[in-house]
Structure formats: C-alpha cells, structure tokens
Amino acid sequence: MDRIPILKMGHALLVTIQVDMHDQLAMALEEDLTARIAATGARGVLIDISSLEIVDSFIGRMLDSIAAVSRLLDARTVVVGMRPAVAITLVELGLSMPGVNTALNVERGLALIGVSVSGDGEHDAGTEV
C-alpha cells in the first residue's frame, strides 16, 4: 500500500500531503507519524496541506488526533498552508480544531516549533521600528 513520506529536518518531522487521501492512507499516516516521533525524539511535526483541495471531517479528525498523540509524546504539531476555501468549509462544517497549531507556510511553522522548543517568551527582544 502507498505511504506518505515523512522527512526529518533537525528536530522536526515534515509531512507534505500531495494526494487526495483515501481513509486508509490517512490512518496509515497517523500510525507512521506516531512511530517516527517516538523513534526520532522529534520535538515538532509539520503537516503541509497546501496541496489539499478539501479537508473533510475524517481528515480533520486525523489531524486532530495526530496533534493530541504527538503532544503526549512531547512534540508539537503544526498544520501549515491550509487554503482559504478549505478553511471556510471546515468552519462551516463545524470543525475548528482548537487543539491544532497552524501556520501560513513551512517556514513559519518551523519558527513556531523553534520558539516553543527553546522555551523563551515569544516577544522577548522586540526589534525597534
């Protein structure tokens, strides 16, 4: 069966979903990710869904539970790149995924994980403008 590849970048794992996932593929991803977090000791998981044209409640639930599981394994999950139409639809569907962190793109997502891992306040230095 197909598997969605998981890349390791430093302390983070990166998953880029590029196909219209069927349900088994989504469930396999959840299992694979859990195993990889445990094996690598990753502190963060980035799931790039910028290619996804829809997220239904099944995929939403998968994202939610990946976030919950990784939290228990001391890793932070960030879903990045959700499209506007997908976001509007998810809200209308009734799924706001409060337990999931989000970021506009992979770069911001990495920054988010970095901040949380370092444990520093987010607004420490304050660049003057």
């Binding site: 990045v80 959700m82 506007p84 706001s96 970021a103 506009l104 911001r108």
Partner: peptide, 8 residues
Amino acid sequence: AAARLMGA
C-alpha cells in the same frame, strides 16, 4: 476561525 486554521 477560518483565519486561525490558516495560521493567522
């Protein structure tokens, strides 16, 4: 809520 899902 939608903006938050997108990361803003």
